[in-house]
């Protein structure tokens, strides 16, 4: 893991140049430019708000559009950086065949690219919060840490997926399906408090309730999204009870994912 950090530092110029290239290439000849980057969370927010007006989701006293937008920001960041990360190696085949630098630069670059889009989304969130007269608490200082954790989660999947995708392109096809399923398993449309209330307070699934809640929070996104909303709106620190199952899972998987990537890296140029 120390090696990753060292590589990030050593290749920071390359990562920033490549990320900058990605952004320019993507938006250079489009009229709306980088606005497209925030269109996805905005559209999803509108749809969710519409759906909620039919089905009724208990969300407490925070206006639903801003609450769900705050959930969509880390979610879309995670989803996009994972899917970009997984195809990052295969889509840079010409570079891989011609020149050597540590290949983890590619998933990291995918992530850095998405960070720029995240900043724009955060600006829009700030405008929405101003509109609803919501002030972030001092706990909002947790946000960089939460985003960093989301990046680690995305990297864990990216390393493994990107390496496997070099051999079997099925991965890049299957991943969007898996990720859109995961969205419904994450507190994006509904708040985590609702799950907590059903399972822990009301014990809706009988004796399985506590186990089910732990399984639910094994999804690191549950803790990430919940913490994001808590520090912004609820004047509360992150809820570590919701964070730790997912965190343990990630800490256990990340080293293997990285080692798998580094081992597979040796044959990228031959197979790709």
């Amino acid at each position: 893991m120390l090696q990753v950090a060292k590589n990030i530092y050593q290749y920071r110029e390359l990562i920033s140049e490549l990320a900058w290239k990605n952004i320019i290439v993507r938006y250079k000849q489009s009229y709306l430019g980088i606005v497209w980057a925030v269109l996805k969370p905005l559209m999803l927010m509108l749809i969710f708000t519409l759906v909620r007006s039919f089905v009724g989701i208990e969300t407490g006293d925070i206006p639903y559009p801003v609450l769900t937008f705050a959930a969509l920001i880390p979610w879309v960041f995670f989803q996009e950086s994972t899917s970009e990360g997984v195809i990052s190696v295969t889509s840079n085949a010409p570079l891989i065949k011609k020149i050597y630098f540590p290949r983890e630069v590619f998933p990291l670059t995918a992530m850095a690219t998405k960070l720029v889009e995240l900043v724009i989304s955060l600006a829009i969130l700030a405008i929405m919060m101003a509109y609803y007269h919501l002030l972030p608490s001092i706990y909002a200082l947790w946000i960089p840490a939460i985003i960093a954790y989301a990046m680690i989660v995305a990297l864990t999947i990216s390393f493994f997926g990107a390496a496997l995708n070099v051999y079997y392109r099925d991965i890049a096809q299957a991943l969007p399906v898996g990720l859109s399923l995961l969205m419904y398993g994450s507190p994006v449309m509904y708040p985590l408090a609702l799950v907590h209330k059903k399972l822990i307070v009301e014990q809706a699934a009988g004796e399985w309730s506590n186990t089910l809640y732990t399984i639910y929070t094994l999804n690191p996104l549950a803790g990430i999204i919940d913490s994001f909303q808590r520090v912004l709106f609820k004047n509360l620190p992150p809820d570590f009870n919701a964070l730790y199952p997912g965190a343990i899972l990630i800490v256990a998987i990340l080293p293997f994912s990285y080692l798998f990537f580094k081992r597979a890296e040796n044959w990228f140029a031959d197979v790709i």
Partner: peptide, 10 residues
């Protein structure tokens, strides 16, 4: 093969 990293959009 020079120009492996040249990106046409930039």
């Amino acid at each position: 093969e020079v120009g492996a990293g040249v990106s046409p959009e930039l």
